[in-house]
Design a protein around this nucleic acid. Structure first.
Lengths: 149, 149
DNA sequence: AAGGTTAGACAACTTGGTTGACTACTTTGG
DNA sequence: CCAAAGTAGTCAACCAAGTTGTCTAACCTT
């Protein structure tokens, strides 16, 4: 049997490719995974560029590039930080929230197709098993998501 | 709960980081994942640079760079193809096979630690579940491994 | 008020890939 | 059997997405 990491990488890849393909078919600009993770992060909390870098596990400079792109494309905007004149909050625009909603539906589709293919109970075991392992390794403060290869 | 792809990426990452750290502690040069996948591939079959590129899911030029590195470091050597004068077989040296053996043990350690953390049965379900999904998506001819982020 | 820290911007560089072009050899089809 | 098309490998130019390093302005001690 394949070693675990290989299985993880290939499955991630298979899911990601399908996601990407379907977005493309709809004609939606296929942002990179990092962009999606930023959306997901911004939905939860107000965040600065530095926060985003932390969350993604990249330098603030790299995060700044991503934020600039998203800003140029109209998915986010920067608004002044209420108390800190150096900082800016990055917030989702309506376009950004719509994209996220659409993407979430797509992910849900893929996940339920996966459940259908291998069994909902198996999928549930996979999810809780991986989550348990991550807690085991990292405790409560998970690190950034960071590139993988 | 986190979406599946996130869990996959984070777990892959967590395992890979531990692997990398432990290799570093031993003082062994920590090759990149791609190198490891090449070793694993060469153990199975005789392969040319083009084959390797195919397997990794990168261009032959990118594969050639990797092979050149491995050659320079003494992990593989190129020998003339018996029937095709253009081609060369890339084969593991003893150093390469030793590295692979060592890495395999390390992976096995990590996997059994994972089994201990989440239960051997859960791990087994994860592995077979993911494998089943990959068969479902790709049929028998799996694509390359390819970068992920 | 002084000294250390932090958010963000700018620039130079690195890494790991890409595309394109070319040579030498191989395979195929009339 | 040979001409045309295809393939292995190499070289070179380029690109994307990160990195490090430096700087300014603002912030936080004390």
């Amino acid at each position: 049997m394949e070693p675990v990491p290989m299985l993880l990488a290939m499955t991630y890849r298979a899911l990601g490719d399908q996601f990407h393909d379907r977005l493309g078919q709809i004609g939606l600009e296929p942002l990179r995974p990092a962009h999606g993770y930023v959306f997901r992060f911004l939905k939860e909390k107000r965040a600065t560029t530095v926060d985003i870098g932390q969350h993604l596990g990249v330098t603030k400079q790299a995060a700044a590039k991503i934020v600039t792109e998203l800003d140029d494309w109209g998915y986010v905007l920067r608004e002044p930080h209420p108390t800190d004149k150096r900082a800016q909050y990055v917030t989702l625009t309506t376009k950004g929230r719509d994209y996220l909603k659409f993407a979430d539906n797509l992910w849900a589709d893929l996940e339920s197709e996966m459940a259908e293919a291998i069994g909902a109970d198996t999928l549930a075991t996979i999810k809780s098993g991986l989550a348990a392992y991550l807690r085991h390794v990292h405790g409560e403060d998970q690190p950034g998501l960071r590139p993988v290869w």
